[in-house]
Amino acid sequence: MELFLDIASWILMSLGGVFVFIGGLGALRMPDLYTRMHAAGITDSIAPILIIPGLMLQAGLTLASVKLLAILVFLLLTGPTASNALASAALLAGNRSEQVKSTAVPESEE
């Protein structure tokens, strides 16, 4: 049982780490602001969902698990909100995506 829990928690944490890495890679390599945010924002939500339960399996039924759960809820609330605020701030500041310009609104602008 102990071994099984350890394996499960390590799988969860490693998967979370992989997602963080993909997010970082996307934030560096994507062509413009919105696609970068997309990469970082989505992986930032999935990574805590994987990593924190992994840590909770390590902690067992203790107060630490409750605290980790609170951190997870906090991250799940604030992460997407921050992404949303960033995207709307960028849009308000007039930052238009190259892709949006070329595909989505070609007729209305030209």
């Binding site: 906090f74 609330l77 604030t78 909100t81 949303n84 605020a85 709307s88």
Partner: peptide, 15 residues
């Protein structure tokens, strides 16, 4: 005017 930050922010302030 920014619904999402406002709702989430208001929810977090008491905590």
């Amino acid at each position: 005017h920014y619904l999402i930050p406002r709702v989430v922010g208001r929810m977090l302030i008491p905590f």
